[in-house]
Amino acid sequence: MNKSELIQAIAVETDVPKAAAKRILNAITRAINTSLINGEPVSLIGFGTFSVKSRSARSGRNPKTGTSIEIASANRIHFKPGKTLKTEINS
């Protein structure tokens, strides 16, 4: 599912015009982005939790040449699915 399909699904489910559904989705994604940028996790009960985790610097190998390289530390977004979502996917 891509963004336009998600907007269509929101419009159908909530019985609002697609333009309003697009504004709703954009507001939700902005709120999630802002929270993650500020280091705050976002928990959606039944769906899951988005959080930011740090990945420390490490050594790696260039697969083409085999030479050793240093990989810089970075933050990454982590999603942990909720119990309800896991149950629905596995049934």
Rank of each mutant, 00 (worst) to 15 (best):
1 M>V: 11
1 M>S: 07
4 S>V: 11
4 S>N: 10
4 S>R: 07
6 L>Q: 08
6 L>K: 00
8 Q>W: 02
8 Q>S: 15
8 Q>D: 12
8 Q>H: 06
9 A>W: 08
10 I>Y: 03
11 A>G: 12
12 V>R: 01
12 V>L: 06
13 E>P: 00
13 E>M: 07
16 V>H: 05
17 P>R: 12
20 A>D: 13
20 A>H: 03
21 A>K: 03
22 K>N: 15
24 I>N: 05
27 A>M: 03
28 I>Y: 09
28 I>K: 03
31 A>S: 09
31 A>Y: 08
31 A>C: 15
32 I>K: 10
32 I>T: 12
33 N>P: 12
36 L>W: 10
36 L>I: 01
38 N>M: 05
38 N>Y: 00
39 G>R: 10
39 G>Q: 10
39 G>C: 13
40 E>Q: 11
43 S>I: 01
45 I>N: 05
46 G>Q: 01
46 G>P: 04
46 G>V: 03
46 G>R: 02
47 F>S: 06
47 F>N: 01
49 T>D: 06
52 V>C: 08
58 R>V: 05
58 R>N: 00
59 S>V: 13
59 S>P: 13
59 S>T: 15
63 P>R: 06
64 K>P: 01
65 T>W: 14
66 G>C: 14
66 G>F: 15
67 T>S: 01
68 S>M: 14
68 S>P: 10
69 I>S: 00
70 E>V: 12
70 E>N: 02
70 E>A: 00
73 S>R: 06
74 A>P: 03
74 A>V: 08
77 I>W: 00
77 I>E: 06
77 I>F: 14
78 H>Y: 10
79 F>A: 03
79 F>K: 07
79 F>P: 13
80 K>D: 05
81 P>M: 08
81 P>V: 06
81 P>L: 14
83 K>P: 04
85 L>G: 05
86 K>N: 14
87 T>Y: 09
87 T>M: 10
90 N>R: 11
90 N>Y: 09
91 S>W: 13
91 S>F: 08
